[in-house]
């Protein structure tokens, strides 16, 4: 009963805070109904031939901000995730070496679920890769695509078993290799302008360096320059990281089960 009272009072406080912040404007003037000045600036510089030295060639604002305006921030976040994965593997190394056997009977859910899951797994792969490829024109991008890709090992382990996924070739070593390879490619894309005489994380031509990644596809579809490549590599890097984490947890769980 005291829990209920606490919950209701928290709810009231939250609503009061939201009302005060949004409507009354306790923390400064209330939120404007129109587009704010910062958003206007971003929209103005995202894809604009008139501002040649500032454009990101990407009509999707979030990707432009994530990989062009605040690229180093995103890179460090990716690195932190990598460090966390490495730490987890170091702690549970002995469990990974005693992964469940490769042979033996497959235990899975019923035939109907297995048949439908095959369709869903292929569709998930297609949609995840599509999110990565079109990250510069539609919502989505690297992290979303990678998180979508990571559902594939989850489904494999749920509908079949982790042992079956392992028999298909899905081991933690390969996932980690995927992760490291694409992280390396990411860094390579970042330092390529430096080799060509430009700046780190340069996307389009800047004053002082004429190097720029291809901004348009053949039929003038916006390609976002380096944003396209970074999204694509981030997709596989995140997919590898999530897969490693899932295999780690799944193996530890299945050890007790004797699966």
């Amino acid at each position: 009963m005291t829990g209920l009272v606490a919950a209701v009072s928290i709810l009231i406080v939250l609503f009061a805070l939201a009302y005060g912040l949004v409507v009354l404007g306790i923390s400064g003037p209330p939120a404007p109904a129109k587009l704010r000045l910062l958003g206007e600036k971003y929209l103005y510089y995202m894809i604009n031939p008139a501002t040649k030295y500032f454009t990101a060639e990407s009509p999707e604002g979030v990707s432009a901000i994530l990989w062009d305006y605040r690229g180093l921030d995103t890179l460090y976040e990716t690195m932190v995730l990598f460090g966390a994965i490495i730490g987890a593997i170091l702690v549970y190394r002995e469990y990974l070496h005693s992964e469940p056997g490769k042979t033996g009977k497959i235990y899975g859910l019923s035939l109907i679920v297995r048949a439908v899951s095959k369709i869903i797994i292929w569709l998930t792969i297609i949609i995840a890769v599509a999110f990565g490829f079109t990250g510069q024109i539609t919502p989505g991008g690297g992290f979303v695509g990678g998180a979508a890709f990571a559902v594939v090992p989850v489904l494999l382990a749920l509908v079949y078993t982790l042992g079956y996924a392992r028999r298909l070739g899905l081991t933690h070593r390969r996932a980690l290799l995927l992760r490291a390879t694409f992280l390396l490619l990411l860094v390579l894309v970042i330092i390529t302008p430096l080799i060509a005489g430009g700046y780190v994380f340069q996307n389009q031509a800047k004053p002082g360096s004429s190097f720029s990644f291809p901004g348009r596809f053949i039929d003038s579809t916006p390609l976002g320059g380096s944003i396209f490549l970074l999204n694509l590599f981030e997709l596989f890097a995140v997919a590898g990281a999530f897969t490693v984490a899932f295999i780690l947890l799944g193996v530890i769980a299945s050890l007790k089960e004797g699966d």
């Binding site: 859910l109 019923s110 439908v116 369709i119």
Partner: peptide, 16 residues
């Protein structure tokens, strides 16, 4: 079409 495929499957799995 996705819902048409997956909704009966989910019900089947839980019912089973």
């Amino acid at each position: 079409s996705l819902i048409l495929i997956t909704a009966p499957t989910g019900s089947h799995a839980v019912a089973r």
